[in-house]
Design a protein around this nucleic acid. Structure first.
Lengths: 150, 150
DNA sequence: TCAAATTTAGAAAAAAAATCTACAAAATAA
DNA sequence: TTATTTTGTAGATTTTTTTTCTAAATTTGA
């Protein structure tokens, strides 16, 4: 992983539609050289996948909530059960086990407040072993990026 | 935006490398039909962009922190200033203006605790108008997806 | 119902990706 | 140092995919 690879990953993280030709010009390399570097990064698993990102304002999923959540207990069984269930919920975009007052931070995207209420009552709080939840509502998205600078 | 478009967006959000041919088979459409639908979704801005997602465990940026932050005041000037500055910080992957006890929730990715300390002291807390911060550390990533189910 | 607009399919052309061969540079071993 | 292997690169060729074009089918609106 040299400087060229890092530049390449930076470019692909910003725009994966760039052709190897375009990348070769930006990186001052031949098309083949760029191609081989990309294939290597894919093989090694550094590049996990390529995805399309949608514009949340164009689809009806602009209501974002951060839910801080506690389990009633922290036995391995309860933790595993909760984590296996929560990943299945399509409204949950991100879920992190964290330090501090709460056990988990969840990022949830739904259509509106009513959809969130529905989600909370019929899906999230019906999961086993949930102690308490605390919802924080997004007012605006100041920054959202998938690009990790190397 | 019909059911076919929703299926198409679901597929592209999961794997943007699928060829129009492969998509046409999954959707029972011709290559041209798929092609035109994709171009329309791109034109309308529903599809914002295509990006490569990296495997965080393969690069040295696995230390993730959620920073809850308050401003000293909420005048338009202070808010604008803060938001303009925070988006520039490469360590900040996500930043949301939120309701509740704190004004902002930031998701920050760095190499390790030392890098986070450095970031906090030399970058984040040197921004103007910051009241208080509260850091919550990620123990594990239970779920992370960019896919919004339609 | 009819006309206009949109969507679709299939074929053809253009562009890009993938493969192949060969050469050059760098790393390793004798 | 020199020979040998490995790795990375370039250019040409083949294969695949994308894009364009034409025409037919379907949907939409008056």
């Amino acid at each position: 992983m040299d400087t060229t690879d890092k530049k390449l990953l930076g470019l692909l993280q910003t725009n994966a539609s760039l052709t190897t030709k375009a990348l070769s010009l930006k990186l001052n390399l031949s098309v083949t050289a760029v191609y081989e570097r990309i294939k290597k990064l894919e093989r090694e698993g550094t590049i996990e996948k390529y995805v399309a990102l949608l514009n949340r304002s164009k689809i009806e999923m602009g209501f974002v909530v951060f839910c801080h959540l506690k389990l009633v207990q922290h036995t391995k069984e309860f933790v595993t059960k909760f984590e296996n269930e929560v990943v299945k919920l399509k409204e949950v975009l991100e879920c992190y086990h964290v330090s501090g007052d709460y056990d988990y931070i969840l990022k949830i995207a739904v259509k509106d407040m009513e959809a969130y209420r529905e989600f909370l009552v019929t899906k999230l709080t019906t999961l086993d072993h949930i102690g308490s939840t605390h919802s924080t509502f997004m007012i605006s998205e100041v920054k959202y990026t998938t690009k990790i600078e190397l």
